[in-house]
Computed example of a mutant assay.
Amino acid sequence: MDEIDSKIIHALQLNGRLTNQELSDRVNLSPSPCHRRVRILEESGVIEGYSARVSHRALGMPIVAFIAVRLASQSKDAMALFEDGVRRTEEVTACYLMSGPQDYILQVFSISLDTYEQFVREKLSELPGIGAWETNFVFGEIKKSGLVLDPRLIK
């Protein structure tokens, strides 16, 4: 991956709806080689896909919770069962395996505290292997870029 690939990735992260012509203009490359590079980035897994950023508030889900989970056992089987359960739980929009005192951090959006409580009682508490969890609610969003920048592009 070179600097042109990094510029392509950055431009697509800012606007995934760019036409090939617009993208090639922004990275100073002719359309055909630009298109070829994008395909290579997609096929190699650097570009995983394209999506729209959606406002959770505009969808009526103002509650954002980050749930720190500690498993009762950190065995390979316990982790696999928990991760499988998380993958099947639609309310969990992100799950990260962590270092430190917590094993996982989950992200959940909710309509209200009542619906969050319902999620906890009916789904979170049913996930296999949980020893303990702690919820932190978001009061405000300071920065949410979603960008992964190549260090060569940071000035």
Rank of each mutant, 00 (worst) to 15 (best):
S44V: 01
R37F: 05
E117G: 12
F119E: 11
F139T: 12
L18E: 05
M98T: 12
L153Q: 04
S6A: 15
L124K: 08
S110Q: 10
S44A: 09
V38I: 03
K143W: 05
A11T: 00
V108Y: 03
Y104W: 04
E134C: 13
C95P: 00
L97R: 13
Y116A: 07
T135W: 03
Q13Y: 06
S110C: 13
I111P: 00
I130R: 02
R70H: 08
S32W: 02
S112H: 06
P101H: 07
R36T: 10
L12K: 00
G16R: 06
M98N: 08
L153M: 04
L81Q: 11
L41H: 01
L81A: 12
P62K: 05
A11L: 03
D103M: 07
I111S: 11
E134G: 08
L106R: 03
Q21C: 07
R70Q: 11
H56Q: 14
R39T: 15
S75E: 08
G49K: 02
I105Q: 07
Y116R: 08
M79H: 11
V148L: 14
D25R: 06
R17T: 15
E141N: 13
K143A: 14
V64Q: 12
K155R: 15
Y50G: 04
H10Q: 07
F82S: 10
A78K: 02
V38D: 01
M79C: 14
A132I: 06
G60F: 02
F137P: 04
F109T: 14
V108A: 10
R26M: 13
R26E: 12
L71V: 11
L106P: 06
Y96Q: 11
N136S: 15
V54I: 15
F82I: 08
Y116T: 10
V86F: 00
L71D: 08
F82Y: 13
K123F: 02
I67M: 04
V148T: 15
M79N: 11
L41R: 01
P62C: 05
P62A: 07
V38A: 02
G100A: 03
Y96V: 14
D114A: 15
I8V: 06
Y96N: 09
F119L: 08
I8R: 00
N15P: 01
E122F: 11
A58V: 09
D25C: 09
F109E: 12
S110P: 05
S99P: 10
A11H: 02
S145Y: 08
L149N: 10
R37A: 03
K123Q: 14
R36Y: 08
L149P: 06
L97Q: 12
D25L: 08
I63K: 05
N136Q: 14
P31H: 07
Y116H: 13
L12R: 01
A58L: 15
E48H: 11
V120K: 15
V64P: 00
N20S: 06
V54G: 02
V69H: 01
Y96A: 15
L97C: 13
T93P: 02
G45T: 10
W133D: 14
I111D: 11
F119C: 10
I9M: 01
N28H: 14
I4Q: 09
V148Y: 04
Q21K: 13
S99M: 10
